[in-house]
Simulated assay, not measured.
Amino acid sequence: MATTELTRENFDEVLDGNDMILIDFWASWCGPCRFFGPVYERVSGRHDGIMFGKVDTEAQPELAGAFGITSIPTLMIIRENVVLYAQPGALPEQELEKLIDGARAVDLDDVRRQAAERERSA
Rank of each mutant, 00 (worst) to 15 (best):
P32S: 14
A105V: 14
I69D: 02
N81K: 13
L91D: 06
G49N: 14
P92E: 10
Q114A: 13
L91A: 08
L75C: 05
D107K: 04
W29D: 08
T3S: 10
M20N: 02
D110N: 11
G45W: 14
T3D: 09
P92N: 07
W26M: 04
F67Y: 08
E41T: 06
G45L: 14
F35C: 04
H47W: 08
A86C: 12
L6K: 01
A115I: 11
T7S: 11
D19G: 15
S71C: 05
L99Q: 08
E95C: 02
N81P: 03
Y40G: 04
R113C: 06
T7C: 05
A64T: 01
V111S: 03
D12L: 14
L6F: 06
G49L: 08
G89Y: 10
F36S: 03
G31R: 14
A122T: 13
C33R: 00
P88R: 04
I23E: 02
Q94P: 01
R113G: 05
Q60G: 03
V55H: 01
F67N: 04
F67E: 01
H47Y: 14
V14G: 00
F11S: 09
M76V: 04
S121Q: 12
V83A: 06
E41L: 03
R46F: 05
V43L: 06
L63N: 01
L108K: 05
F25Y: 14
I72G: 00
R113N: 08
C33T: 01
I100P: 01
Y85N: 05
I23L: 02
Q94W: 10
E13H: 11
P92S: 05
E117P: 00
L99V: 11
E41G: 02
F25W: 09
A59L: 08
R34E: 07
I72Y: 01
C30F: 11
I21K: 02
V106E: 03
R118P: 00
I69G: 01
D109G: 12
S44M: 07
L99Y: 10
T3G: 06
E62I: 07
E95K: 09
I77Q: 03
G45K: 11
P73L: 02
R118F: 13
Y85I: 11
G89D: 10
I21F: 00
E62F: 10
R104S: 12
T7L: 03
G45S: 13
I72A: 02
H47S: 05
W29Q: 07
T70Y: 03
E117V: 13
G53R: 00
V39T: 06
I100S: 02
A90M: 09
S44A: 15
L91I: 12
A64Y: 00
D24E: 14
S44T: 05
G89R: 07
W29V: 10
V55R: 02
A90Y: 04
E5V: 15
R112N: 08
G37C: 10
S71D: 04
L15K: 13
S121H: 07
D16E: 14
M51S: 07
N10R: 10
L6Y: 01
E80G: 08
Q60I: 05
D19Y: 11
N18R: 09
Y85R: 06
V82A: 06
R112D: 08
E58S: 05
S121M: 13
G53V: 02
L99I: 11
T4H: 09
V83M: 09
Q114F: 10
F36E: 00
R79W: 03
I78V: 15
D107N: 11
E119F: 09
C30G: 07
P61H: 04
